[in-house]
Amino acid sequence: MFLFIVFAAIAVVAALGVILSRKPVYSALFLLLNFATLAAMYILLQAQFLAAVQIIVYAGAIVVLFLFVVMLIGGGELGPGDRETSRQGAALRSLVSLSNGLPKGDKETRKQGDAATSLASPHGSAAPRLRGSLALVLAVLLLAAVGYGLVTGHLFPVQGNAAAFGQGSVEAIGAALYTDYLLPFELTSVLLLVGMVGAVVLAKNEG
């Protein structure tokens, strides 16, 4: 339960970091942290193969793709045209103050909202450092929790009722995937082919 709480806290804070960061680069890196935490969750759920696939596909392919696009369209610095409109800014502020759980009066809400905006602002000099150190603390916490789980054996598969479950091993998943789910498995290859062709066509089409 202790490990679950640590992982859940890291996942939620990383998710909030994704949607509250001003620069898409930070969002992508928080997204990476979120995916890594979910991989640890899969191990807690005795789905080891899913954890490996989560790291390879999500953290290895999708986040890298996001980072490539962020780099290609200009380093991730939001221009003035990309600034949130005032309505969205107000919604964001009210949401942040709501999540702080203290919507007491308009003035206090606004004060908290301003604090939140200054936290989310790319111009404040302390804010990026604070967010970076937050991300560092979260990542170190994740590593420490995984190490703790490995040392104490909480992350190892339980032997009891998990035998019928196949422990989420590659063998059990492969047996199910190539017998009961053969047709969906083949159809996903068509889906991947269509996605690949679509991406190439969109990338090639100059006009």
Partner: peptide, 20 residues
């Protein structure tokens, strides 16, 4: 777990096309 694998495939294809 099988369904999670399918969802991952869909997500990968979606991200490729979406980012394009």
């Amino acid at each position: 777990q099988i369904f999670v694998l399918m969802a991952m495939v869909v997500a990968a294809a979606e991200v490729a096309v979406g980012l394009a």
